[in-house]
């Protein structure tokens, strides 16, 4: 379900808009510098620890992974700050990463990313962490993807 910007304001309240509109010239070099859609990707009440949910964001050709880690994470949302989402394309050569054993693992060249540490590369060949998808939580527990913090592999521009 894709929400219009007007609708997302209603759902999330005005407080979250700063990051959505942070596409001013001054921030050109740093993400998020583009205007991203807001898309519902899950609900805090239906997520189980370490049971990832896959979704497409910011468009149909980019897969994201939403996961509740059961431990606090950088950029985590929810009561325990443990719900995070990332682009699933490995930032090394674009293979799809797997969520396995509490971390992301790329099956092609074995880069591993720590989901609690902004998907930082703690082993392997990738040069940046997985792009973190900024999340917002509505009062009813719905989780929305709002922007992508980092370049999705294979693109020169996220959208």
């Amino acid at each position: 379900m894709v929400l219009s910007r007007r609708r997302i304001v209603q759902v999330l309240g005005g407080v979250t808009m700063a990051s959505l509109t942070g596409a001013g010239k001054a921030q050109f070099w740093f993400a998020p510098s583009l205007t991203y859609p807001a898309i519902k990707v899950g609900n805090v009440n239906s997520l189980k620890n370490n049971d990832p949910v896959y979704f497409n964001y910011p468009d149909a050709r980019s897969q994201g992974i939403l996961v509740k880690l059961g431990r606090p994470a950088i950029g985590g949302v929810g009561r325990d700050r443990d719900i995070v989402a990332f682009s699933a394309a490995c930032t090394h050569m674009g293979c799809g990463v797997q969520y396995k054993g509490g971390r992301f693992l790329c099956p092609c060249h074995y880069t591993m990313f720590d989901p609690a540490k902004a998907a930082a590369v703690y082993q392997g060949l990738a040069s940046t962490g997985l792009p973190q998808i900024q999340l917002g939580v509505a009062q009813n527990g719905d989780i929305f993807a709002r922007a992508v913090n980092g370049l999705i592999w294979g693109r020169v521009k996220n959208i």
């Binding site: 740093f30 993400a31 998020p32 950029g75 902004a118 020169v156």
Partner: peptide, 13 residues
């Protein structure tokens, strides 16, 4: 969110 500035667009040669 992360410790370092990230980017979501790069210049094209």
């Amino acid at each position: 969110m992360s410790n370092i500035g990230r980017r979501d667009a790069l210049p094209i040669p």
